[in-house]
Design a protein around this nucleic acid. Structure first.
Lengths: 210, 210
DNA sequence: GTCTATACCACGATAGAC
DNA sequence: GTCTATCGTGGTATAGAC
């Protein structure tokens, strides 16, 4: 049977930091921490600079602006997320298996990398990166929508609009992570993964209704 | 049978504006529009002042600070929401009926008052109102959690943790509204209310599982 | 490439006339 | 109560030495 967590050969691609330019990554890491705890607008470049142990000049040498720094961080996280979701898509062939693995993956990620998760799910990106398209139409979420569409096409999921099925399937999990990030739910989350997935799946699976 | 929309005798209490002090309410209304379209930090007091057709002095006479203005707006909206949710709780006695009415109400509200809905669901309140508790633990959401708890107690819903059931039941709807507010889903939303509720309810209702 | 020092501007908030 | 004019702070970004 499918396991709830990531089952690929490679470890998750998420947060692939600290390789070639450690000091630059230190800046991104400090920015992530500050952006998620205080918010983008409550974080000055000076705050980031001090937290990362570098100078203002260093930051403006590597990033053309504060906004650009946020964008670099954003794309690094989104790309890692997309890679992991793609891997889950390859490892599983049914919507049931995929959604189960995805929900397990998300809950684990929220627990292990809350700041990264908060920056992806929680932040109002458009407010500080005006030209960025909404995150829900970015690659990771588009891939999830495709999986749902495929599942409906194969008769695995009920005949409802794809958005409805997708939000029904993943909305509970995402909502739960929001509550966790807001401090309303205490960790650990992962023990609840099975229940979260069962509730979601019962709602969308095709078959014996009424 | 229950109707999906609000069934109480009174109209929804939400957004009870324009009564005693029209100009003050004009300020709140302009602020709401600007806060949700550009974000709190991208909106200056001057912007609000111009949009509302009043002077800076007027704003600072009625609100002690920009943050205080946001707080007044926030509480006005939360209170209206709480009143409407309480009315739904009175009008329906089962979790099935209540959740159906709530989902219909939320989708309708998102469509008719997108700015208000965005300010409640979308905004990162803690970033600009540091002393406010997280919205998910405020009165409206606490009431919904109570309804779920009661439903589980009466054997209507499956035996899972209350948070899990609550997020499963309302997470899809809330997620959908997020997508709508981000411009990913086109209106109208209300025609999907029945499907949204059915998916959610099938996931949590007690009874014949495998 | 990386630092320090500083220019410049926008914003929140106030002062004081009416 | 409501207005206009203005102050002070703090933040982004740059200049220029090393």
């Amino acid at each position: 049977m499918d396991t709830v967590t990531h089952t690929g050969a490679q470890p998750p691609a998420f947060w692939p930091f600290g390789r070639e330019n450690p000091r630059r990554d230190e800046v991104l890491s400090a920015a992530l921490e500050l952006f998620t705890s205080r918010g983008y607008f409550n974080t000055s470049v000076q705050d980031i600079q001090k937290a990362a142990g570098v100078s203002t000049g260093f930051i403006y040498h590597h990033f053309s602006s504060k906004e650009e720094l946020a964008r670099a961080l954003y794309h690094k996280l989104i790309d890692g997320l997309a890679a992991d979701i793609a891997a889950i898509g390859r490892d599983h062939s049914t919507l049931a298996g995929r959604s189960r693995a995805l929900i397990g993956y998300f809950l684990r990620l929220a627990e292990e990398r809350p700041a990264a998760m908060a920056f992806i799910l929680h932040a109002r990106h458009r407010e500080f990166m005006p030209d960025e398209k909404p995150i829900c139409s970015s690659a990771p979420f588009a891939m999830m929508l495709d999986m749902v569409r495929e599942g409906t096409g194969k008769g695995e999921a009920r005949e409802v609009e794809t958005v409805v099925a997708a939000t029904a399937l993943f909305g509970g999990c995402i909502r739960m992570i929001h509550l966790f990030l807001d401090g309303v739910i205490e960790p650990p989350l992962t023990p609840m993964a099975d229940d979260v997935w069962r509730c979601a799946w019962e709602g969308v699976r095709a078959g014996d209704m009424e």
